[in-house]
Simulated scan of single mutants.
Amino acid sequence: MGIQTGDYLTPARLNTRSVRARRTTTLSLTSGSVTAVPFDAEDWDNAAMFSATSSNISLPVAGLWGFAGFGAIQSNATGLRRLLVDVNSSGTFSPAVNSRPPVSGDNTHITISGSHVATAGDTLQLCAHQTSGGALNLLANAYFTVWLIES
């Protein structure tokens, strides 16, 4: 089966342990604070890595794990917008950080991707950060996908 235009990333295509957690509502982000995104839905989870209303994705086996995330932050002309991945809720972020300047008059869309060499039991969190000087919303439908590349 070939991949066609409009096809989506699914567990069957990944053929490995994977999860995609999603946030269905907005999340207020305080200016200058790094906020772990608590997800409230999953599109799939074929390895019991996610629990509803959690911000943690738990990695069940040691190995090389890939991740990809997306978030949109409401329009504002000041500061920066960032997505980061926190390892083990430690405030230690993976090398993958994606910063964007703000978009005035439109939402700022941010993606992030990377990998993590994990020990069994490690956790990953998608975090959002903005520096507008006031609270801004991370909009609904932010997501975080994690998959095992090699164990």
Rank of each mutant, 00 (worst) to 15 (best):
G2V: 12
I3C: 06
T5D: 15
G6K: 07
Y8Q: 14
Y8N: 08
L9Q: 14
L9E: 14
P11V: 06
R13L: 14
T16E: 01
S18I: 00
S18G: 02
V19C: 01
R20E: 05
R23I: 01
T24C: 00
T26C: 13
T26M: 14
T26L: 13
L27S: 01
S28F: 10
S28Q: 15
S28E: 12
T30N: 15
T30C: 12
S33G: 08
T35V: 13
T35H: 14
A36C: 09
P38I: 06
F39M: 05
D40A: 13
D40Q: 12
D40H: 09
E42Q: 15
D43P: 10
D43A: 14
W44P: 00
D45R: 12
N46H: 04
F50T: 00
F50M: 00
F50P: 02
S51A: 14
T53F: 15
S54L: 11
S54E: 15
I57L: 01
I57C: 01
S58T: 13
S58H: 05
S58M: 04
L59N: 01
P60N: 04
V61R: 10
A62P: 09
A62F: 01
G63M: 07
G63P: 03
L64M: 15
G66K: 02
G66C: 02
F67K: 04
F67N: 03
A68F: 12
A68C: 10
G71I: 07
A72P: 07
L80D: 14
R81W: 14
R81M: 08
L84D: 10
V85W: 04
V85D: 03
V85S: 06
D86L: 11
V87R: 10
V87F: 03
V87P: 01
V87G: 01
V87Y: 07
N88A: 01
S89C: 02
S90R: 07
S90K: 05
G91A: 02
T92K: 05
T92E: 05
F93Q: 03
P95C: 02
P95I: 04
A96I: 00
A96S: 09
A96E: 00
V97W: 09
V97T: 15
N98K: 12
S99Y: 10
R100A: 12
P101Y: 13
S104A: 11
S104V: 04
S104W: 08
S104H: 06
N107C: 02
T108I: 03
T108D: 03
T108F: 11
H109E: 11
I110D: 04
I110Y: 11
T111N: 08
S113Y: 13
S115T: 14
S115N: 13
H116C: 00
H116V: 00
A118S: 11
A118C: 05
T119N: 10
G121K: 06
D122C: 09
D122R: 08
T123L: 07
L126P: 12
L126G: 10
C127L: 11
C127H: 14
H129A: 06
H129C: 07
H129Q: 10
T131M: 06
S132P: 09
G133T: 00
G134V: 09
L136P: 12
N137P: 15
N137G: 10
N137H: 12
L138N: 01
L138Y: 03
N141K: 12
A142K: 07
Y143A: 06
F144C: 03
T145E: 11
T145N: 06
L148R: 08
I149Y: 02
I149S: 05
I149F: 07
S151D: 13
S151M: 13
S151K: 14
